[in-house]
Structure formats: structure tokens, C-alpha cells
Design a protein around this nucleic acid. Structure first.
Lengths: 342, 342
DNA sequence: CTGTTAGCGCATTCAA
DNA sequence: TTGAATGCGCTAACAG
């Protein structure tokens, strides 16, 4: 409840003087009054009314963190170990920079616009926004804005995005599989609705095949169904004796783990009967047996980089490359068997 | 940038009338002007300046979600599957109630006070706050306040808390272990610094022993060290051939999984050489092999309940029981072996 | 049914 | 070096 005015009264000075002390404009305040005022600020436990600050100069020190929900899983988006890693890293960085985090989950671009207007957001991080929605948002908002893992469909705007070497990831894992003798693979894409980096990853797979003078047909790109039960039916079919595939390339550790556990339950062994690879290298890949061969990415780093880029945008500093692709590397573990040359 | 005043001008009415339309006070506005005003509000994409709202009547529609960080893990708090489940559920509920989420991580009670003052928070959810700090916060804040998984050391305040049947959990799992022939067990507590529900859980263990005319000595309560390497040394010692223990009772699935994976790596089999149990029943317990026998709790429900209680407090409705203990149940899987009666 | 007005707490400009 | 005055956008009390 203590306001600048009250503090000023207690100190016997004017509100302006208190404000100057608060803002570190010490050149405009004599050391004596400064100390006096500082003392009172301390004991009154003064905290500025952020509402008044917003009103006074239209910026709030709030960073909006918007997680677009893909309808891909039954749980909430935030329960994904991937999003929590990113979120954890961002919260920390934002706080360290003296800003506040407003967290929001949505699939509606208008909500983003409303939010940024209403709260005079100083910055915005948008995670997993479908490409066409990015365009809408970027063209109707002037708040500094960084995307994470978004894929754009036009070049009319500068999109600041922290992405991943998706194609390279697909390439690396496929090259490895080929070197282990796997030429019949299926690519299991996360979701038909929001494709994200899946097409790029699949391109990488195809690239690796071409490099060997082989080819990977388009119909090896198989979107995973939304329901768990439907997915399990698919896993069965793909790993069935009659199936042509020797390896299943998943675009997420989560589903790779789900498949392995399910197949083991039906008596099918990984990797002796079918090989499986993942993507992300999250905690699941290390916890499951066989340990999952996968493509590693540093999700916390994504969060950190996003905020550091956003801060530069806010401070109008140069940001370097606008569309960053974080490096990946292959993490070879135990879920792929070598196929003997026959 | 469109304000009430601008809308009023465009509609040729007074700001008050616009405000009445905005607030649904239709009894004070003629249907004709109402429609006209509503149309303009739509096309202008009016969004209220929340700063002005805060200033005008000191409440912000923001719910502060504060995760106290225990120094228990190397990663950020938010990366815990437990916290992300709670957070995900809360974000959803808060949004559905028309409030905003301000997310903050800290271990400093003063930051909580500052935050709630500065932003005129309408409500506060505090997760994992040590008991003594609860007292400080509750006595110096008048914002509606709900704790999650906090354990209080005094009775001077009414603490609204969503907790767990910790003692019952310890009791159930221990009774099960005893029924499987395990009488030499060690209880591995999460952390020496912030004990949380561990003492209650251990009490439950002791209760189960007493019920059988046996006893469980206090020194079977073993706090896990903070560093991973130190924990692994401990796991080795506890599962060593010379060790007196036939079962390790963990107070968190995370560590149970960590121990199982580590022991398997050193050639010790679970459960044939040593049995292991967890607590929480999070995703790890189903993913790991052997599947973990554990105590189930519904963490999302914790989040939902916390917000529903908080909303009642905000609306000054009666809340029923202030300190809720969510039920647990035993989830028997494959990580405990039966010891033959010799 | 509609309009006018004061005031919330702060930043900022201008005056002393 | 310090003080007074204005306005940001909204609410709510009051006047018409």
C-alpha cells in the first residue's frame, strides 16, 4: 500500500525526488536526502504498482510465453518433458533479466493479440505455432517476438525463430541405419495436423537414401494417429512378421518409447525383431530398455537462446542470424541391430 | 490502441455507455446503442488496458503460481514431471476461469510478497514451500492463497493446502512389502533440506511394522545426497551383498528409477537381488523395466483442486475442508520379489 | 437511459 | 537540487 507519495511525505520531500532515488538518478538528488529516502523505501517495503507503470509508459516488463497446443496428445502440452525443459529454462532467463512471465496455452491467434495488447507485453515467445498462424501474428503485432520450433510458409516477414537442424537429424539417423544394413524403414511422423519439423526430417531420410543410390518412397512417411489405441494397432502392423520394415524411425522419443513398451508387451523384441529410433534424446530415451538410439537436441538451450534473442530485440540490439538452427547429434545406443549381409 | 474513449467517440456516445456495454450492464443501455457500440468494439478489436484496470480497482485477474525450488535436483524445478503435471492442470483451470497466470520460481519469501503487492495479484498458489516460510507468508499477506504439498509447523493460521495421504502411502507400501516377506528395508528420503512429506511417509512405514509386532528403527530413514554420484555410491552400498536390506523404499519414482538403472548397470538385478519401490506413480514408473511398484497419486488433480479452492476463496465462497489430503493407492507392479519363508 | 467527473500511482516535463 | 502539474485508461459515484 505504500506509494511514492506516502514515502515522499514520510521523508519530507517531493514525490519526484523519491522517484529519482528509485530510478537511480542520483545526480539529481543530494546524498543526504538520498540515504534518508532509501532508508524509508526499505522499511516501508515499497513495491511499485505495476498497473500504474503500465499506464504511465505502456510497457509492463511482462514476457508472454505462449505454448500453442497441438492436439497431438491427450495430456496437456505442458506435461511434455520437452516443453517443460524449454519452459524451465525460459522462466529462469526471463526472471534473471528482471522480467515477469505470463504463461498461456492456446491454439487461437486472436488470443495472442488480445493478450499482448491488454497487458502491453514487452516481449513474446511463441512455441509450436503452425506456419500460417505465424504469418497472421507477425503481421498484426509489433511486440518483439521470438518463435520456437516454428516453420514458416512465406518470406514477407523476418521471423526470429529458434529451430533445429531437422533435416540433418533425419539424415544422420538414416545414414546410421543404412550403415547397419537397414534399407526398409518407415518414418513415423508426430502428427498430421501440425507437422512441425517432420517434413524436413523426412527429407533428411530421403537424402541419406539418395546418397547411397537408393530411394525412400513418399509413402514411408506415416503420420501417427491421435489415439493411443490406434497407434498401438499401427505398431503391431508395422512390426508384424509380414511387415517389410526392419526399422521404425520415430520423430519423437515419446512415441518410440511407447512403441517399444507396447511391442515388448506383445512378445516382439527390440532390436532383435525390429529396430527403433527416436528423436529428441529426452529422459525417456535413457530410461527405457533397450536404451534408445536417437537424435540429440538440447531443449533447454532452445529456451535460453530464445530469451537471449528476445532481450536483444527488446533492447534494439543487433541479433545476428534471425532463424537459428540448433545443432543436433546422433546418440547411438542399443535399439538398432546390425543386419548381417546376406 | 483503441480505448473506451475512442470507441465512445466513434459511436457518438459517452465512455460510460461503452463501459456499460462492455460490462454487460444492458439494463442501462438501450438495445439500439448497445448493438451499435458492440459492433464498433468488435471491429476495433478492443482490448482493455489491464494497467488501467489494476490502477482503478486494485485487482489484476492475475493468479501467481510460485514454485519453490527445492535444491534437490540439478535441473530446474519445472522439468520435474510432477511439477509439469500440476502446472499444466493449473494453467488450464486458471485460464478457464478467466484469469491470467504469472509463473515464478523462487526460494525467497520476500519475492512472493513483492510480487503479490506489485501486481495486485488476485490469488496465489504456492508449491512446495517449507513450513516455516509458509508461516511468514501467510501472516504478511492477505491475498487468497492456496498451498500445494506444504507441511505446516504451527496452527495459528488457517492454511489452505492440497496435500496427500503421505502416511497412508508409507503404510500401504510397507504393509505390502511385509506381506512379501521383507522385514529389512531402508527408506530413502528425497532430501535433507526440504523434507516435505517424507517424515509422514516414514511414519506410515513404522506404523505398518508396529502392526505386525515389529519395529522399524529411526536410522532406516536415509536422506538421499544431493549429488548424483554420491547417490550412486549409496545405492551400491545398500544393494551390496553385505547389506542387510532386502528392499529399498524410495520416496520418489525418479530416484527409484535412477537406482534401478544404476544397479542394473553394475550387474545387480531388481527385484531378484534387491526389491525397489517408488512413490508418485509418474511416467517413469511405467516406462522402466521392471515396472515399478509404487504409490499412486494424481498430480493433475492436485492442480485442479488447488485452483478450484482458490477460486472459492477469491469469490468468498465456503471452501469446506481447508487442508485436503488427496487419496493414494498402491500400484503393484514388478519391482518387488516375494521372499520365501525359510 | 446517458453524460460528467474524480481519482487510482507513476513518469515526465517544466518551473523554481 | 527539488517541487508542482499533467496525463496515461479505466471505474464508479453522481448528475442530468
Amino acid at each position: 500500500m505504500s506509494t511514492i507519495k506516502i514515502i515522499a511525505k514520510k521523508a519530507g520531500v517531493s514525490p519526484t525526488t523519491v522517484a529519482n532515488v528509485l530510478h537511480g538518478n542520483f545526480s539529481k538528488v543530494s546524498p543526504a536526502t538520498r540515504e534518508k529516502v532509501q532508508g524509508i523505501i526499505q522499511e516501508e517495503k515499497y513495491a511499485p504498482n505495476m498497473g500504474a507503470i503500465i499506464l504511465a509508459h505502456s510497457n509492463s516488463r511482462i514476457i508472454g510465453v505462449i505454448m500453442f497446443m497441438e492436439p497431438r496428445r491427450d495430456e496437456t502440452v505442458l506435461e511434455d518433458p520437452f516443453s517443460s525443459a524449454i519452459l524451465g529454462a525460459m522462466e529462469r532467463e526471463i526472471r534473471d533479466n528482471g522480467y515477469f512471465v505470463m504463461l498461456h496455452t492456446t491454439s487461437d491467434e486472436n488470443e495472442v493479440l488480445r493478450l499482448s495488447k491488454a497487458w502491453k507485453l514487452d516481449g513474446l515467445v511463441l512455441v509450436w505455432v503452425p506456419g500460417d498462424i505465424c504469418r497472421v501474428i507477425s503481421s498484426s503485432i509489433d511486440t518483439p517476438l521470438v518463435y520456437i520450433d516454428c516453420y514458416f510458409t512465406d518470406n514477407k516477414h523476418i521471423y526470429h525463430n529458434i529451430g533445429l537442424q531437422d533435416q540433418r537429424g533425419g539424415y544422420e539417423i538414416t545414414r546410421y541405419l543404412l550403415s547397419m544394413g537397414h534399407t526398409s524403414i518407415a518414418f513415423l511422423a508426430n502428427n498430421p495436423l501440425f507437422s512441425g519439423g517432420d517434413p524436413a526430417r523426412f527429407n533428411g531420410c530421403q537424402e541419406a537414401f539418395r546418397e547411397q543410390g537408393l530411394s525412400l518412397a513418399k509413402d514411408r512417411y506415416i503420420p501417427l494417429p491421435k489415439g493411443r489405441h490406434e497407434r498401438e494397432i499401427l505398431y503391431s502392423q508395422l512390426a508384424d512378421e509380414g511387415s517389410p520394415y526392419t526399422a521404425l524411425v520415430f520423430s519423437a522419443d515419446y512415441y518410440a518409447a511407447e512403441a517399444i513398451l507396447f511391442l515388448q508387451g506383445t512378445g516382439i523384441d527390440v532390436p532383435s525383431q525390429v529396430s527403433v529410433t527416436g528423436f529428441d534424446d529426452n529422459i525417456f530415451s535413457r530410461m527405457i530398455r533397450p536404451r534408445l538410439t536417437t537424435v540429440h537436441q538440447d531443449s533447454s538451450e532452445k529456451g535460453r537462446l530464445a530469451i537471449s534473442m528476445l532481450m536483444k530485440l527488446i533492447r534494439k540490439e543487433p541479433v545476428g542470424e534471425a532463424n537459428v538452427q540448433l545443432p543436433i547429434h546422433l546418440e547411438i545406443r542399443d535399439s538398432v541391430r546390425r543386419i548381417p549381409v546376406s
